[in-house]
């Protein structure tokens, strides 16, 4: 199958984040993470548990924009916060208005805390997520304003901050991947800093560095993000996102 789009590379890169998780709850925030997690459930990790984004745990994987399916459980907000997050059997993929070289994320506000220049959502569950369960991030528009040297207000915490806060913060700290529209990264660079895992086909390492506000470590040659299999493309195009909502978030140029 030809003409794989950038959004489809992103979808499989996100799905690969959930591949080794086994029987845990996936909490994808936003459109492409939801597509990727539903793809993983249909391919590499059928044990993955996913909700409708509200209070229902769904047995299957409805198309994006839909939430109707067999209900296999109840997951109101209170259970997410008091049972799932502290229990740890969860992998959340959050957005990030800023993410820095040390893996700190900001969804709270831009500028100084006391009087921000722009208010965002607030820290939400990011502080608790990052010290309790595996956490990945999704950035649909990789730029030097998003990928920065230091975030303004630390919502999700990176490794160095976890270590500074002590064993209770590092015990379950596990920032797994950052997937953007340009590539895939982890925090396995020197001192747990940002490192290339792969660049999406059509993107160079130099282009990524140009579009970043901080240094990104590379271990030798950086490979390309893998190509989706024909089976994955059928799932994405015909089952999971037939109306191409993915193109709205990551347009084909």
């Amino acid at each position: 199958m030809s003409d794989v789009t950038r959004s489809e590379y992103c979808a499989v890169a996100i799905a690969d984040c959930f591949a080794d998780d086994g029987e845990i709850m996936g909490s994808p925030m936003g459109l492409l993470p939801t597509l990727g997690a539903r793809l993983a459930k249909n391919t590499t990790n059928p044990a993955l548990m996913l909700t409708d984004g509200e209070a229902r745990i769904l047995r299957g994987t409805p198309p994006l924009g839909q939430s109707g399916d067999v209900t296999e459980g109840w997951m109101p907000f209170r259970l997410v916060l008091e049972s799932v997050v502290p229990y740890g059997k969860r992998h959340v993929m959050m957005g990030a208005t800023q993410i820095d070289r040390h893996g700190n994320q900001n969804i709270s506000a831009i500028g100084p805390w006391e009087q921000p220049t722009r208010q965002l959502l607030g820290v939400r569950g990011a502080p608790g997520n990052t010290v309790n369960n595996r956490t990945s991030y999704w950035v649909p528009k990789h730029s030097a304003r998003v990928v920065v040297e230091q975030v303004d207000i630390v919502s999700g915490i990176g490794r160095a901050r976890a270590e500074a806060a002590g064993p209770a913060a590092t015990k379950f700290h596990d920032v797994h991947r950052l997937v953007t529209n340009l590539g895939v990264f982890d925090f396995g660079g020197p001192g747990h800093t940002m490192r290339f895992v792969s660049v999406h086909p059509g993107v160079t390492v130099d282009e990524v560095r140009e579009a970043s506000g901080c240094e990104i470590h590379a271990d030798g040659d950086v490979p390309e993000t893998r190509t989706p299999t024909d089976g994955e493309l059928v799932l994405i195009r015909e089952l999971l996102d037939p109306t191409k909502l993915r193109e709205r978030e990551v347009p084909s140029s």
């Binding site: 997050v85 502290p86 709270s108 805390w113 820290v123 569950g125 990011a126 502080p127 608790g128 990052t130 010290v131 309790n132 207000i153 630390v154 919502s155 999700g156 915490i157 901050r161 976890a162 500074a164 806060a165 002590g166 209770a168 913060a169 379950f172």
Partner: peptide, 13 residues
């Protein structure tokens, strides 16, 4: 007691 908040800006602010 709980783990959430450790290392984040919440405790600083």
């Amino acid at each position: 007691p709980m783990r959430a908040g450790l290392g984040s800006a919440v405790l600083e602010n």
